[in-house]
Design a protein around this nucleic acid. Structure first.
Lengths: 227, 227
DNA sequence: TCAAAAGTGTTCGTTGTACACCCATGC
DNA sequence: GCATGGGTGTACAACGAACACTTTTGA
């Protein structure tokens, strides 16, 4: 009995990919990493970086691998979001995508331009092309919602910050992501009361009065009511 | 060139299943639906109902199909939880499982005993065997956590209730799931203030003073701070 | 008339929110 | 000495938590 290899390769089951929504905050804006596609049917379109899950790796491992392909960074905050499975989300074959989001501190990160993609770039969240490939617009929207809500009840913001930072930098990140102004005194009162931070003896030099630098006591995800 | 059908069938990619954590509240306890496995390597063990995702169905559709296989019920509250992907979670083949949870009102639901499984039964959450098949213990734990937290900020409890119910029944469900006593006056004040319920003109007869029956204004998931 | 669940308000402590001025530095 | 961001406390409103008694019914 002849076997249709093509069909068998596509297999009778959906295959699984991971798509990464990689966030950073730079220049006082929330940014997301997009890649530009080389091949049809999405040639020239921008998309979230992603890839198929290999037979011998977990989803988390696949997500870390894909993250490393574009950025070099390791030990970043990584979280599984949701699995997207519309039948026609990929016109080429039946792919179920497990979406992840990552938070990275883009200071000193060099993006790799790899042959797989035409280009790799940070996009301000307000300037993301509205015609992303696949269902990536939907995924990005989902990721943004999750990011906003997790900022309010966890400490994951550490993922966006360098080791030492000022309280103003920290507050600015909250403001940029939540898209609203926060009261300086209330913000400081709350965040210091939570006992997540420890003051260092260093100060950030600048044009004005130097600001004390703080660091997180623990860079591990924790649940805490921040806002 | 000969093709190894077995290998091709297993395909070089992980395959995708859906596992369902189906909750109900009966006799003042939170219960979960388990099936008993017929085949090795988990013969005789209890597990969450589940099944492979077909090439032409979405994850939500697969979840609904599997739910219907055991229970007949439709239009229940259904939510995707998380995707589990440990390499050895299924000793037989590489399967990634997308976990869902469902809330159903078990009043008047007949469980189907189907040939696929040795048995189907409700288990009180406190009496679930600790050696569930696969990684289902982990999935169940995850589902329970999610259920508890979503009770606090959504109205999904409607999924566990009949159309009309008393405030005491409603409160009891919260108490059973959250595993703590609630203050009757505070609970009523809060839940009525939220304006999710409307009083009906019916009362529940019993041995004692009849209780007014209420119903949800909308049986759609909504975000609201309940507790 | 008794037992059992239904139903109903007030007080108090905690938490969140609004708000304005002095300080340290570089230029 | 002035412009700029750093740093601090208090007063009021809103919300959550604790708490006890009366009502209605069936037996």
């Amino acid at each position: 009995m002849p076997v249709n290899i093509k069909t068998e390769n596509k297999c009778q089951h959906p295959i699984v990919a991971v798509d990464m929504t990689i966030f950073t905050v730079q220049e006082n804006t929330l940014q997301v990493l997009l890649i530009q596609m080389k091949k049809k049917p999405f040639q020239g379109k921008w998309a979230l970086p992603g890839g198929l899950v290999k037979i011998n790796e977990t989803l988390d491992e696949a997500a870390k691998r894909i993250l490393a392909e574009e950025t070099n960074v390791r030990n970043v905050y990584l979280e599984q979001l949701y699995s997207f499975s519309d039948l026609n989300r990929d016109p080429h074959q039946r792919v179920i995508s497990v979406a992840y989001f990552a938070l990275i501190n883009a200071q000193g990160i060099k993006l790799k331009t790899i042959p797989k993609y035409a280009d790799v770039q940070w996009f301000s969240i307000k300037k993301v092309p509205s015609d992303l490939a696949y269902d990536h617009k939907k995924i990005l929207k989902y990721a943004l919602t999750r990011l906003k809500s997790k900022l309010e009840y966890t400490n994951i913001v550490y993922g966006l910050l360098p080791k030492k930072f000022t309280l103003s930098q920290l507050q600015k990140i909250y403001e940029v992501i939540l898209n609203r102004k926060l009261d300086k005194r209330n913000f400081r009162k709350k965040i210091l009361f939570l006992d997540l931070l420890k003051p260092t003896s260093s100060f950030q030099k600048g044009k004005h009065r130097p600001a004390r630098l703080y660091e997180f006591k623990k860079r591990k995800p924790m649940f805490v009511e921040i806002l």
